[in-house]
Simulated assay, not measured.
Amino acid sequence: MENLLTRIAMLHVLLGLFLTLSGFGFVREAESLGINYGQVANDLPAPERVIELLRSLRVTKARIYDTNPQVLSAFANSNVELIVTVENNMLATLVDPNQALQWVSTRIRPFIPATKITGIAVGNEVFSGDDTTLLNYLVPAMVSLHAALARLGLDQYIHVSTPNSLAVLQESFPPSAGVFRPELAGIMPQFLQFLTSTKSPFWINAYPYFAYKDNSNKISLDYVLFNPNAGMVDPYTHLHYDNMLYAQVDAVIFAMERMGYGGIEVRVSETGWPSRGDGNEIGATLENAAAYNRNLLRRQMRNEGTPLRPNMRLEIYVFALFNEDMKPGPTSERNYGLFHPDGTMAYNVGLSALSTTSSTSTASISLTSNATQVKT
């Protein structure tokens, strides 16, 4: 137990340095930054320890992939905004308004207002998943859940949306050519109309890593890592892009505008970079993962918007807090975390502590010039 507490204490310090970037000698919150807290792993710290960690680090947004009551209870009185998830296999059931009301009444309502639930992610990547039958259930389930929230007086506090893979787009380059896949032409307007009527965001899981892995001979590594580079200019809008993530987000905005829905906010529900991969997973290294997340967090501290919407800060959730060693698939799938399941650091993002200035452990930090590796 002593070793576990020691690792948790170290986790507090290290992730605090990672997530409270400041170029001015004092700690600031990145108001548009969140983190994905997945739990498909062995020996994770208890939720009570995780929320204690996040609270001490001034992390104000998190997302989980279910409605685990232990996690929801742990988040009580933490002031961390939490997005919860409806699993894909629940969509057909929740089309029924009575079932949706029961779900909200038992999974959400008992934890409000102590737990600050601000969003419900209905399914995950349904539009691009293998089970096409889910498409018929997605929007009706969202409508039923929103109606249930309204009936309980919670609709003004909790939005309803669904995270989408970038594969919803038929074209994404240049950004102004963004268009949804033609087979989604029937359902996408229904979805976008729901988002418009409920003032909910379009969530996108955007991973420049995948584009680089598949086209490393054509795509600049610096461009996908937010490193200094010449970037690209959209030939139709003349907007300049110095990183791929912002270009991907703007491609989604253009796709929505093509369907007549230009006022919907886009938020990044997942983005990250794996620190390990199989032999064919080009670019999955400690150095690249550290560079991507370090540079992304620098941008978030500026509360930046994309070139198309420069005055609307882009909300981003980093994937992920922990490596999840029980996930199936290639090696990269288990190595997106900033930390291993036992609480040890997966890699260093290039930050160093300068001082502790008060009894509340408010640390002044500086950005180092490169990502220092830590032996795992």
Rank of each mutant, 00 (worst) to 15 (best):
N3G: 12
A9D: 15
H12V: 14
H12G: 11
L14G: 08
L15P: 11
L15Y: 15
F18V: 12
L19S: 13
T20G: 14
S22T: 13
G25D: 10
R28C: 13
E31K: 13
S32M: 11
I35T: 03
N36E: 06
Y37V: 06
V40L: 10
A41E: 00
P45F: 01
E52G: 12
S56N: 13
L57E: 15
D66W: 02
T67H: 11
T67I: 13
F75H: 02
S78N: 11
T85A: 15
E87V: 15
Q99H: 09
Q99E: 14
A100H: 08
V104L: 05
S105K: 13
I108Q: 03
T115W: 07
K116I: 10
I120R: 02
I120Y: 01
A121L: 06
G123H: 03
D130M: 10
D130K: 14
D131Y: 03
T132M: 10
T133F: 12
V139Q: 08
A150D: 15
L154S: 12
L154A: 11
H159Y: 15
V160H: 03
V160F: 11
N164K: 11
S165Q: 02
S165M: 05
P174S: 02
L184R: 07
L184C: 08
P189G: 09
P189M: 06
L192Q: 08
T198W: 05
S200L: 00
P201A: 03
N205C: 01
Y207K: 00
Y209V: 01
A211F: 02
Y212F: 07
S216A: 09
I219C: 00
L225D: 06
L225Y: 07
F226H: 04
N227P: 10
A230F: 14
D234Q: 05
Y236T: 12
Y241L: 04
Q248L: 08
Q248I: 03
I253V: 14
R258V: 03
R258E: 04
M259W: 07
M259N: 05
Y261N: 06
Y261I: 03
V266A: 04
V266P: 01
R267V: 06
E270G: 01
T271Y: 07
G272D: 04
G272Q: 03
S275C: 12
N280I: 08
T285C: 11
N288W: 05
A290F: 04
M301D: 06
R302F: 08
L308K: 00
N311L: 07
N311F: 08
L314Y: 02
I316D: 00
Y317V: 02
Y317R: 00
A320E: 06
A320C: 10
M326V: 07
M326F: 06
P328R: 00
R334G: 02
N335W: 00
Y336I: 02
P341C: 04
T344H: 05
T344A: 08
V349H: 03
S352E: 13
S361G: 10
S361H: 15
T362H: 07
I365S: 07
L367C: 05
S369H: 14
